[in-house]
Computed example of a mutant assay.
Amino acid sequence: MTLDTTSQTCVLVGAPIDCGKVRRGCLMGPDALRTAGIASTLTDLGHSVEDWGNYAPDEITGANCDNPAVHGLAETIGWSRSLRRAASKAMESGTPIFMGGDHAMSLGTIAGVADYAEKQNRPLFLLWLDAHTDIHTLDTTTTGNLHGTPVAYAMGLDGFDGFEPMPKVTGENVCYIGLRSVDPSERQAVVTHGPTAIDMRALDEHGIAAPLKAFLSQVRAANGILHVSLDVDFLDPSCAPAVGTTVPGGATVREAHLAMEMLCDSGLVRALDIVELNPFLDERGRTAELMVDLTASIFGRRVFDRDTTRY
């Protein structure tokens, strides 16, 4: 096997969205990643980098929802429309890296990537590296936090009045890895709609390589476009504290790097979200630096270039 070290154009898109949950601070995420050296890291790996700066939401008025718990609806809809355009454009220019911002940004980034995939007549696949399923709708959420809704929106579930329809991602094309905080209604939605759901117990028992390899084989067989959404809370908070939704028992740094290295080896990644980085909660920038390191592993950094099929 020859490792793919082909130079890419990496398009950095800042999404300082901070309305998808109550706890503030994620709006500083894009600039924290810049400060941690994401552009120079990618350049050192041989890639060209275009930084398109930080985007802003469209102005939306008159957004309403029957669920009184939902908050930040108009602003979130505005972000979804702005980032959808940005994502579709970035896909035409290279490999976009969407720097968040809370996970509600994926309501826009996935829609834009889905638009691109539809133009290419190729199916879109989602790899959701997260402690949570994010499969609530506006009707089912009890917290009203819209960062818990992007997968449901991508799968075309009902309950997204005010959001523009997007090309549907089928449940079988979605894979969760790292789950450990799923409420009963989300659990039922996973059972009903059929995404692959790998929780931390499964990783403890079988490791991360086997389920990820199986999903990547599925993407390759379908000639699919792969969008990876990497939430800081995929990792254990002992190594990545800068997130407002900490759940103990997450992936280790080594497990995360293995996943990123496998994604690199596959050559399938066409878009990346980095979400829920809250620098206000960080310790001397170590979470931001870790997220940059994980990004580097996706884009080719490794100790040795080696044929991993021999081991």
Score class of each variant (00 low, 15 high):
R310M: 09
G101W: 00
V191I: 15
G250I: 00
E50C: 09
S266P: 03
C175K: 02
G112Q: 10
A210R: 07
N173L: 11
H147D: 12
N64R: 15
W79N: 00
V174F: 04
S80Y: 03
Q120G: 02
D231W: 01
A221D: 11
T309L: 04
D233F: 06
L230Q: 07
R81Q: 07
C10G: 03
A154L: 09
T137H: 13
D282Y: 01
V174K: 01
D44G: 10
I198H: 00
G178S: 12
C175Q: 08
A111D: 03
V219L: 10
M155H: 11
C19N: 09
R220L: 07
H193Y: 14
Q120V: 03
A69N: 14
V22I: 15
L216Y: 03
E92A: 15
F125A: 10
P237A: 08
H132R: 14
S88I: 04
M91I: 12
R301D: 10
T252W: 02
I110R: 06
A259K: 02
P241L: 05
A197R: 00
D31H: 10
I208Y: 02
L73F: 02
K119Q: 15
R302K: 04
R286N: 10
S238Q: 05
H206W: 10
R220D: 08
V275A: 12
G14S: 13
G162T: 00
I225D: 02
V269E: 04
E118W: 07
C239V: 14
V269H: 05
A111R: 01
A189L: 13
P167W: 11
A259M: 15
A251P: 00
G159L: 12
M291Q: 10
V253L: 11
G300L: 02
D273Q: 14
H257Y: 05
N223F: 02
P241E: 02
A86C: 15
G72Y: 01
A222C: 05
F163W: 06
E164H: 04
L107Y: 01
N173C: 15
G178Q: 05
L258Y: 02
G249V: 04
I274K: 03
G53L: 14
